[in-house]
Simulated scan of single mutants.
Amino acid sequence: MRYSPHKHVWVRTWAGDDDIELVFLPDDGAWLNWIEAEFAALRYFVLNGRTSPSTH
């Protein structure tokens, strides 16, 4: 079982009280998360044309 504090009843109650909708992505759905695309673009920009063992 994974640690999921965002699914705790207290967090769900807090979110509901403040009209916040929690959206749960599948564990293997990183491509659905917009921030992943932002990080990919940043990584490309920063590492453009560079080769090192840490970028492989």
Rank of each mutant, 00 (worst) to 15 (best):
Arg43His: 14
Leu22Asn: 05
Ile20Ala: 01
Val23Met: 06
Trp34Thr: 09
Ala15Val: 03
Pro5Arg: 06
Arg12Glu: 15
Asn33Ile: 03
Leu42Gln: 10
Ile35Arg: 15
His56Asp: 07
Asp27Gln: 04
Leu32Lys: 12
Thr13His: 11
Arg12Lys: 14
Asp27Val: 01
Ser54Trp: 01
Lys7Met: 09
Phe45Gly: 08
Phe39His: 14
Asp27Asn: 08
His6Asp: 08
Arg2Glu: 13
Pro53Met: 01
Gly49Pro: 02
Trp31Glu: 14
Asp19Asn: 15
Leu22Tyr: 05
Tyr3Arg: 07
Gly49Glu: 03
Arg2His: 08
Met1Arg: 14
Arg2Met: 06
Arg2Gly: 01
Glu38Asn: 07
Arg50Thr: 01
Phe45Gln: 12
Thr51Cys: 06
Asn33Ser: 11
Val11Pro: 00
Gly16Arg: 08
Ala15Asp: 06
Ala37Lys: 09
Gly29Lys: 00
Thr55Ala: 04
Gly49His: 04
Asp19Leu: 06
Val9Leu: 07
Thr51Asn: 07
Val46Trp: 04
Trp31Val: 03
Ile35Pro: 01
Tyr44Pro: 00
Pro5Ser: 07
Trp34Lys: 09
His56Arg: 12
Ser4Thr: 15
His6Trp: 12
Tyr3Val: 07
Ala37Trp: 15
Asp19Glu: 04
Thr51Arg: 08
Ile35Cys: 06
Asp28Ser: 05
Val9Phe: 10
Tyr44Lys: 13
Gly29Gln: 01
Leu47Glu: 12
Asn48Asp: 14
Ala30Glu: 10
Tyr44Met: 12
Asp17Ile: 07
Val11Tyr: 05
Val9Arg: 12
Asn33Phe: 08
Asp19His: 05
Trp34Asp: 07
His6Lys: 03
His56Gly: 04
Val9Asp: 06
Ala40Met: 13
Glu38Gln: 12
Arg50Ile: 03
Ser54Tyr: 01
Val11His: 02
Leu22Glu: 05
Trp10His: 09
Ser52Asn: 02
Trp10Gly: 07
Phe24Arg: 03
Ser52Phe: 03
Asp19Trp: 02
Leu22Pro: 03
Ala41Thr: 11
Gly16Leu: 01
Met1Cys: 09
Pro5Gln: 07
Ala41Ser: 12
Asn48His: 15
Pro53Lys: 02
Glu36Phe: 10
Pro5Val: 06
Pro53Arg: 02
Gly49Asp: 02
Asp17Gln: 14
Arg12Gln: 10
Thr51Ile: 09
Glu36Lys: 05
Asn33His: 14
Ile35Asp: 14
Arg2Gln: 13
Val23Ala: 05
Asp28Thr: 00
Ala40Ser: 15
Ala30Phe: 11
Thr13Tyr: 09
Gly29Pro: 01
Asn48Gln: 13
Asp27Met: 01
Thr51Val: 08
Thr13Glu: 15
Glu36Ser: 13
Phe24Met: 02
Val46Ile: 15
Trp34Tyr: 08
Asp19Arg: 08
Thr13Asp: 15
Tyr3His: 13
Asp17Phe: 06
Thr51Gly: 04
Tyr44Gly: 07
Phe45Cys: 06
Trp14Lys: 13
Arg43Ser: 07
Ile20Ser: 00
Arg2Thr: 05
Pro26Lys: 05
Ser52Leu: 01
Asp18Ser: 12
Ala37Tyr: 08
Glu21Asn: 06
Trp14Asp: 11
Glu21Leu: 08
Leu22Thr: 04
Arg2Leu: 04
His56Pro: 00
Val11Cys: 02
Arg43Glu: 13
